[in-house]
Amino acid sequence: MSTSTVAPEIVAFARDVREALADLPADEVDDLTEGLEADLAESLAEDLRRTLPDPVAYAAELRAAAGLPTRAPSRGLWGGLADAWRDDVARTKEAITRSPALASALAFFVPLRPVWWIARAWVAIWISAAAYGDEQGFAFEPVWIVPLLGAIVVSVQWGRGLWQFPRLRGLLVVGNILAGVAFLPVTLSAYGNVDDDYVRAEYVDEGSYDVDGLAMSGEPVTNIYAYDAAGNPLTGVQLFDIEGKPLVPNRDVDTTSIQQTPATLETGAKVFNVYPLALTQMIWDEFGELVPDPDVDPAKLAAYANGPFLRVPAVQAPAAVQPTEPVAPLNE
């Protein structure tokens, strides 16, 4: 029968059994487990209520039935640690399957494993990119895209049990755990990067909002007083930026205590980019509300209305607008 019809839990179980036999020579493992998936599918089909047994115990039984010794214990410190880890994992798995609540929680997370396969590839590449300072928020410099795709392929194939790396197993398991531990800090760090960019972008963007409006050297600009070439004050001057956006003053009355009155266009729209704007001095009343100051100095109001200067020096004859190509004299 083809492997494609074998249930994924059987494939995973068979993989765990083979892992538990990994200390044996490869051909011995093949002898013991050849057709294991099909046999498991058959035995499960015989009794529908049955669940898969513990793979480590199953492997031990295969080993014993074949007259092979139990897993060689003298495998040095790392081998011993790996065995202990495997035993713990096996016991934990068994405990989980015995508790209905844990089992259903596990059943919920098992289909999400592919998400982790991709996430761990991303974590690995993100950390690598960060080591070169190439990370950009959740992403990185384009040169890292190819390693990322490669890491995803390897991670997913490993997760599906299609690619086994018997010699690198310990390294991969440790890497998997490290990726799990690093996932949260890396995500937070990546998010922090994004956040910075976001805040910066937003700050620039807010020039278009009424609330912020114009500023000069960081100080709010509450009004603009324009003078013509002769130096005389102008009224009703409409200002726009290079994109046609109205240049509106800073209208943060909380900070400036000055409230602008919008001008009305012929369309009926009330706009704030018509200068100079009529200003009202505001004050906090006893109820903590901003109200027009009833005792404002009339001279201040006059200055608000007339601007800082009654007249400014005239602009010299416009030398700058002369054509760059000299005009030929008429009498030649």
């Binding site: 013991l32 050849e34 492997a59 039984e61 295969l62 014993a64 039935a65 074949a66």
Partner: peptide
């Protein structure tokens, strides 16, 4: 008798 033992024995005898 364990199932794994039997399946394993069948496979080994076949091999």
């Amino acid at each position: 008798v364990g199932e794994a033992s039997v399946y394993g024995t069948l496979r080994r005898l076949y091999t």
